[in-house]
Amino acid sequence: MSRMNIDLPGLSLKNPVMPASGCFGFGREFSQLFDLSELGAIMIKATTEEPRYGNATPRVAETPAGMLNAIGLQNPGLEKVIGNELEWLKQFDVPIIANVAGSQTEDYVQVAKEISKVENVHALELNISCPNVKTGGIAFGTIPETAKELTKKVKEVSEVPVYVKLSPNVSDIVGMAKAVEDGGADGITMINTLLGMRIDLKTGRPVLANRTGGLSGPAVKPVAVRMVYEVSQKTNLPIIGMGGISTVEDIIEFYLAGADAVAIGTANFVNPFICTELIAGLDQYLEKHNVDHISELKGLSWK
């Protein structure tokens, strides 16, 4: 499948399709369904220094063509992620992108420093865009100067390239992208979820225990495509695009907008085999349309 291999900072990908953070756990469950080595990469669940339980349930709610989630960065903590999860993932021939989260700069720096030393972690994804935690997360993702400073600090300690995951909950996405580029980011991943809410008519209260949650799925795709389109024209950083992808046509659309690779989130819940199906389908699509290499499609909508 030589028309699908992609080289990005730190990442030599067999194909440009990877599961998005938080939608694939640490891969264990999916390994019962298919060989994880087939994936371009794996973005693991957000890791924080200490174990986190996350928010109360209900944590998910259905919405038209999408879903809201307020998991709250639940994870077993840095030590266990390194000792159990990443160790276990070493049996697969697949690069890991470690999603790093925290409440303050020191947390991010600490996690980044340790997790970037692990052999199968080929890149970091700084999660400055989680809408579901009270402190940190989103604050880092909405103020350009803060995002830039954090990126700088993490770059100083990381042993692998650093991608920054942008939040769509901002008025100037290009400004955010430029800020993290100034901070020394090696790449951008986008978008995280859009802040939303659903109210139960029977109880008159929000459906989610956390009240608000992040919207994902097909409903957010046009927002993501627009943002990739804008950012790719204004920065030189490679972009891993995501937001509502569930078909091969969606992947092509992200490429035309300006993405270098794509990640699949919510669609894994609808069809846990989606990533492998898309990898096979994408190759067929390229063949049928006489595309010699997928990267030829990048940014064609504005070039």
């Binding site: 939608c23 756990g25 469950e29 669940k45 174990p51 349930t57 209900p58 709610a61 998991i71 639940q74």
Partner: peptide, 27 residues
Amino acid sequence: EERMGCGIGACFACVCHPSADETGTSY
């Protein structure tokens, strides 16, 4: 019973606390 996302253990939508949980972070 709980609201579910993935149904296979990957999304953390359906967690509950075990009765023996000193740290409050077990699930």
